[in-house]
Nucleic acid binder design. Sequence first.
DNA 1: ACATCGATCTACT
DNA 2: GTAGATCGATGTA
Length: 208
Amino acid sequence: MALSNGISIFTKENIYNLPKIDRSFFLENTVDVACNLLGKIMVFENNDDLLAGRIVETEAYCQNDPACHANKGITPRNSAMFGPAGFSYVYFTYGFHYCLNFVTAEEGIGEAVLIRAVEPLLGIDIMMKNRRKTKITDLCSGPGKLTQAFSINKNHNKLDLTASNLFVVDDNYTITDIIKTTRIGIKEGIDKLWRFYPESHKSWVSKL
DNA sequence: ACATCGATCTACT
DNA sequence: GTAGATCGATGTA
């Protein structure tokens, strides 16, 4: 799907021809999974709409980390984090926004990777409609923005990423320039450099 | 029951 | 740069 001029175009067909990431991918160390997800393509089939974006910003949340929702044990909200790896964890925050995470670690351990930004690839017209914005870099450059662009909400909590309409595919896109920095919007755990984005994809992320 | 506050975004200055 | 929006999960009583 790479053109000779280096620009890539995506169609439904070539998204469906790409291999889906399986559960073992999410069973690596959570911080590694957060890095490994950079460059992968998140896909969401919403009725007749096919939405896809390249993941360009993630944050890792580990159970023994004070910033993690699972740090104080299981609750109704965070229960997805304690389930098996390779499921979604969607929560509502600030009275407005949903945030999407991918659960990592084996069942019983509450860890996940927050998806903070994607580069839109497919379904851009739908994202513009959902966001009521036309600037392409403003569609998915933040955790609340990308869920709005994709129409992801609480109903999409605990989806199996290996067997549902939400999944991740790999087109062998290589990322070599990962910036490791502090996570955003948290009070504790700011010592950990668990936010990741590629230097080359700065223009698509939520904040520098 | 009630008070608190958050893994955010927008619109304004 | 910062205020304000808005609601549900959570902790304390």
